[in-house]
Write a protein that binds this DNA or RNA. Structure first.
Lengths: 153, 153
DNA sequence: CCTGAAAACAGACCCCC
DNA sequence: GGGGGTCTGTTTTCAGG
């Protein structure tokens, strides 16, 4: 599962995380190599699943998605069928940007992006109507201090 | 701050969020337009800051970043100087992928990606040695159910 | 594994509608 | 604001060291 990468691979990944629109020539120049080897390494890392996709990062505020909530969920249900339905709801709802199953007394955490608090309430009502949940705490973000997709290499 | 976008702009953004490596011709074909108008719209959305950047999304597991923590922080300090130092630490630390200032009794939430629990402890020790913090709860992710950069349009 | 060249392709920008 | 064409640069492939 863990890919074996050398220093050159890592340098390429650092650059691609910063700006995936860099040309091969430019990447090659910055890592001290040339086009073809860089291209082969990128292709290999794609095939290995190290590079998952190439995406455009948008500004949520500019799109009117001005509210961000972290939702802490406790549940009494731990049956397979309940969990299957719960996960399906999370995956189907586009306002759920992240969902993790946790260790400890809180069972799940969600990150939810919506236009405003009203829209969060709509989401919340829909969620609890679809699956039974024991306890929910919503943490409202006042300020996004940092948000990056760049992983530490 | 909120950009005015029409249906065509939104369709283009949906495609670019899915796969930013699509060619202009391909995007134009799928949204029912042609190269030049699509190119002009993308350029405009870049200039407006709707499109922030283009990036490669990597698989954290494949890079050996197998531990993910959500960190809930309470602080007694609310002075400007303390806050400035705290935010600087968060921005400087590459393992902090997200940081939000919250409303309510929890002051901050962080998302932290590290190779393992040992590395989290190292981060935690460094954090509390650099700034005074009243109370910290770390939530360990057992399973990433969903993680997307695709915003709902 | 790298270099260098060649071919296919896509981006950027024109002018005309 | 959209459409077509063109030049330029980039990606991708391949032969050879």
């Amino acid at each position: 599962m863990v890919a074996r990468l050398d220093e050159m691979d890592r340098k390429i990944l650092v650059l691609l995380q910063e700006d995936a629109s860099l040309s091969l020539d430019e990447i090659a120049r910055r890592v001290g190599s040339s086009k073809t080897p860089v291209w082969n390494r990128i292709r290999r890392m794609r095939e290995q699943g190290v590079i998952l996709k190439q995406t455009a990062i948008l500004d949520p505020e500019a799109l009117g998605l001005e509210a961000c909530f972290f939702v802490l969920i406790r549940t009494s249900e731990h049956e397979a069928e309940w969990q299957r339905r719960f996960l399906q709801v999370l995956r189907d709802r586009p306002e759920v940007l992240e969902a993790h199953r946790l260790a400890g007394d809180i069972d799940y955490i969600l990150k939810v992006r919506v236009p405003n608090a009203r829209a969060y309430d709509t989401f919340y009502q829909a969620l609890i109507s679809e699956v039974k949940i024991y306890n929910v705490t919503a943490l409202l973000s006042m300020e996004e201090i940092k948000a990056t997709t760049v992983l530490p290499l």
